[in-house]
């Protein structure tokens, strides 16, 4: 087993059989609880409850998978971007997503799982990625809508993760959030150009926002009373705010932004509620959410097939480089050719 970021990923203390080990374990648990309560970070080699480790692996992996599957709907438009400036921006953005996937896989690796294992689980459907990427990008405006709405929702989710109790995840998120600050702005700017452009461009922008609005709201996950992992994750400070809180925060931010864009959001119930100090919004179609999650979205098969294909097509390349390294490398990996 190779080790993770600055620290060996040792397996957490397996429950012992004798009394002495149980005392140790109770002491370790107390240290862990105290660290979380004091808002200190848990680091890779610290003792941690198995369930905490498992929750983190699941969440970080899903996050990493979302980054690399999320490259596909946008990469779909790199070759067709309507200006060279937009092409460069989109390439840089899709590249960042590969980088973010990579940072996150590295964070997961500090918990004792390898990137290969995680990719296997993605490819075989045993781990999920964000359902939003199972929707297609049908027009150029979808690239703008993804930047504005999907990245906007993602940022709302991710900013609190910079304070997550697990150090390597929090550090990865700091880097991700810093780099992503341009993603949302470029999307908004691209949509603005369309909205203020020709009639056909404006219609394209409105159509994209109509299609991406509701799936973006679903990105925050099921309502709090139906969210199975939320309470424990909040207690462990992996998660800092509930799904519904974050969703409301996003709606409050997006509604005035839509107005400034000159586009409407497809929700007749959306309106400012003076009393609550928030926007009210209409009911979300959770049946669609669960259906897409189960694999019935417009692109589920396509996304995974393409990902698997890229991985399989690349196997001979990875093997070649590994074989070359074995032939030419000294003890610590310096190529000696």
């Amino acid at each position: 087993m190779t080790t993770g970021t600055a620290g060996t990923a040792v397996t957490a203390g397996t429950p012992g059989t004798d009394a002495a080990e149980e005392v140790t374990r109770a002491a370790q648990e107390a240290v862990f609880d105290a660290a979380v309560a004091a808002d200190e970070r848990i680091e890779p080699r610290d003792w941690m409850p198995e369930a905490y480790r498992a929750t983190l692996v699941r969440q970080i992996a899903q996050h990493a998978h979302s980054e690399i599957i999320g490259m596909q709907p946008e990469a779909n438009w790199i070759t067709r971007a309507p200006s060279l400036r937009r092409k460069a921006i989109l390439m840089a953005k899709v590249q960042d997503e590969a980088g973010h996937g990579l940072y996150l896989y590295s964070a997961a690796e500090t918990l004792g799982v390898s990137r290969d294992e995680l990719l296997d689980k993605l490819h075989s459907g045993r781990q999920k990625y964000s359902s939003i990427f199972n929707y297609p990008t049908l027009t150029w405006a979808d690239v703008g809508a993804i930047g504005w709405l999907v990245d906007g929702a993602a940022i709302t989710n991710q900013v609190p993760l910079c304070r997550c109790s697990y150090g390597p995840y929090a550090r990865a998120m700091v880097r991700v959030c810093k780099e992503e600050s341009f993603h949302q702005r470029q999307g908004y700017e691209a949509l603005l150009a369309l909205s203020r452009g020709t009639e056909a461009q404006h219609a394209m922008a409105q159509d994209a926002v109509d299609r991406w609005w509701w799936p973006s709201l679903m990105m925050f996950g099921p309502p709090d009373d139906e969210s199975s992992h939320s309470a424990q994750s909040m207690a462990w400070k992996i998660k800092r705010h509930s799904n519904d809180e974050l969703r409301q925060r996003f709606v409050d931010i997006a509604a005035p932004q839509a107005e400034a864009l000159g586009l409407t959001l497809p929700d007749p119930d959306l309106k400012w509620n003076e009393e609550r100090g928030h926007y009210d919004f209409g009911p979300i179609d959770w049946a669609e959410f669960w259906d897409v999650l189960k694999g019935n979205g417009p692109c589920n098969d396509q996304r995974i097939t393409k990902r698997r294909q890229a991985h399989e097509d690349g196997a001979w390349v990875r093997e070649a480089a590994a074989a070359y390294a074995r032939k030419h490398t000294g003890q610590h990996g310096e190529a000696q050719a």
Binding site: G4, T5, A6, L102, Y103, S106, E109, R115, R171, A172, R175, R318, A321, A322, Y324, A325, H328, T329, H332, G333, E334, A335
Partner: peptide
């Protein structure tokens, strides 16, 4: 320390 990555050997790393 900035982070980690995978590579077949030091030159590629």
């Amino acid at each position: 320390h900035a982070g980690s990555l995978h590579a077949p050997d030091a030159e590629m790393a």
